[in-house]
Amino acid sequence: MQEPQSLLATARAKLEKSLLAKGLRRSGERFAILEEVYSRNDHFDAEELFQAMQQKSYRVSRATVYNTLDVLLDCGLVRKHRFGEDDNSKSRYEKSLGRQQHAHLVCTVCHRVKEFCDPRLHLIQTNVGNALQFEVESHSLVFYGQCTDDSCETKPNEATQEVAKRRNDAI
């Protein structure tokens, strides 16, 4: 795995190359946003990224954050996820360079996202690709449920869990 500074240098070079190829401006704001993204080890939405930039006294607009995320997505520097079952779920992002392929666990109560790696996932990907004569480039696997973490700040009590269970059983 690359060192964080080396990884950031690689990301900066990739962004610069992409901006030049598309004739887009190489602004300091875009590179500051890239640096903030690559300093994180979580899944974040655009608003969280905007707030982080504001807290560090970077003067960037929301539009710049959203537009830069699109540029970073387009050149493969971030991945975009929609963790949720409805159209109103927020897009979440994570850096993509220097990351091994992984899957996600999403708590439907506190909405935390946890990552996990399992070598069997790669084996399944390879076997499915071979069996169906398909060149798999990546995969996405998300498990939804409730974490059992005691620090789950919005974890429902037993009464609300029973109501939710009955509602799900009725569906």
Rank of each mutant, 00 (worst) to 15 (best):
Q2R: 11
Q2L: 13
Q2Y: 12
E3L: 11
L8Y: 13
A11S: 03
K14G: 01
L15K: 06
K17C: 04
K17Q: 14
S18A: 15
A21G: 05
K22C: 03
L24T: 01
E29K: 08
I33Y: 09
I33L: 15
I33E: 10
L34Q: 11
L34D: 12
E35N: 05
E36L: 09
E36R: 07
V37W: 01
Y38L: 02
S39D: 10
N41S: 11
D42M: 01
H43C: 07
F44D: 04
A46S: 15
E48M: 11
L49A: 03
L49M: 09
F50M: 07
Q55K: 12
Y58H: 15
Y58R: 07
R59P: 02
D70N: 09
L72G: 02
L72C: 02
L72F: 02
L73M: 07
D74V: 00
C75G: 02
R79N: 13
K80M: 13
K80G: 03
R82I: 03
R82Q: 14
E85W: 13
E85V: 00
L97Y: 09
G98N: 10
R99H: 05
Q100A: 05
Q101R: 10
H104Y: 11
H104A: 00
C107L: 10
T108D: 15
F116T: 03
F116Y: 15
L121W: 11
I124E: 11
I124Y: 15
T126S: 09
T126N: 11
N127Y: 06
N130M: 10
A131F: 13
L132S: 04
F134E: 10
E137T: 01
S138V: 00
H139W: 15
L141I: 11
G145E: 12
Q146E: 15
C147L: 08
S151P: 00
C152Y: 13
T154E: 13
T154R: 12
T154V: 08
K155N: 07
K155S: 09
P156G: 04
E158Q: 08
A159F: 15
T160V: 06
V163R: 04
R167V: 05
A170E: 15
I171G: 04
